[in-house]
Amino acid sequence: MSEDAANSAPHRPVGARWRRWYEALTTTRLTKLGAGLVCALFALAVFGPAVSPYDPAAQALAHRLEAPSLAHPLGTDQLGRDVLTRLLHGARLSLGIAIAVTAVRLSLGTAVGLVAGYVGGWVDEALMRLVDTLLAFPGIVLALVIAGILGPSLTNVMVALAVVGWASYARLVRSSVLSVREREFVTASRLLGRSRAHVLGRHLIPNVVAPVVVLATLDVGGVILGTAGLSFLGLGAQPPTPEWGTMLASGRNYLRTAWWLVNAPGVLIMLTVFGFNLLGDGLRDALSPTQSAHIEQL
């Protein structure tokens, strides 16, 4: 493994790759803020539900629509449930979904992009027309229709968002592969009689990692907005589930009397997406300055 790594074109001392990532995460104040926000949210999602004294589903009709107080820092909802507790459980749900959906998009898109770029010919042509077709729709509209026809549920929203979103990864990976494929170290490796799998694994994949990670980081925010948006429209999580978009939607009848019901989830969704966007922007600027224009186009 290690001797092979030394043979691959960009010569870097052991550990340099990790240091590069670490430096990328700490270059600017905004990137640090993003990293901090994301870490804080993960901490809240992991430990929050255990710390909270309330049950996210326990109704307490005597305490309906109570304004924020010491006992209920973010107030209670129309069924007397503690809003903060529900948001913490929702954080688990939203982050979990966002990561799962992004992972599926990333794997599927990377696989398709590698095959299209490396194999070329009619396979490339066919795969790219499929990508064009998927990118021919505004993402949320297509996800909305797919999730809607499958039937309202959180799982179907995840399926829809994953199906709709892999195409930009495929396009990005394909163009990275095309630009690396003809470089000397790849040709050299091929001339040495290395197998296709070896060339893919040792040369092509490592070179597409940085742009793909950047796109994925920015994408997590998009998936969170998409999940919340579709749930808000009633297609995702159904009411007892403490999902952020669903909570926001059920607050719409109490805009005048209980303003915290829509604003608490709203602020939290924004902070989460903001954190991932800051992180993604910082990674992009630090890791792949030449790729930034390209990623922005997607």
Binding site: G245, A249, M270, V273, N277
Partner: peptide, 8 residues
Amino acid sequence: VSMPNFWL
């Protein structure tokens, strides 16, 4: 960019 437009 990060603000969900349903909340705004």
